[in-house]
């Protein structure tokens, strides 16, 4: 169990993200829109007169540009974590090799 724990964790994450895609059936044109946007719709229902008093300085001109920036955000994070884990693993290995009196390759 312990040995496969990480694999099971990854599988569970993938399942949790995939299952809704198959299970949810709606007649609406757009499903899986952002919850942030749905909250905005509720605001409009509760307070129909409310006008947002400030708008973003800049908006991504298209969904493609938006996904570029989101991908960039995730890539930055993923790259750094990968780098750190690589450094850590190498450190553990070199320490072990050093303790066994072998030269570090």
């Amino acid at each position: 169990m312990k040995k496969h724990q990480n694999l099971l964790l990854i599988l569970a994450v993938i399942l949790l993200a995939l299952v809704p895609l198959g299970v949810v059936q709606t007649d609406e044109e757009e499903t899986f829109t952002g919850a942030d946007g749905e909250a905005m719709v509720v605001i409009n229902q509760i307070a129909p007169d409310y006008e947002p008093w400030f708008s973003p300085f800049w908006e991504p001109p298209s969904a493609e540009v938006e996904s570029l920036l989101f991908a960039l955000q995730a890539a930055l994070g993923g790259g750094f974590i990968g780098y750190y884990l690589g450094v850590s693993i190498t450190r553990v290995r070199m320490r072990r090799a050093w303790q066994q009196g072998q030269p570090c390759a």
Partner: peptide, 24 residues
């Protein structure tokens, strides 16, 4: 500290579909 920041960067970029029919 960089790892903590990186983790937040990745996770908050991932819009994941949910059982409610919307993504967050």
């Amino acid at each position: 500290l960089g790892v903590a920041a990186a983790f937040t960067f990745i996770l908050s970029a991932l819009k994941i579909p949910s059982v409610s029919g919307s993504s967050s």
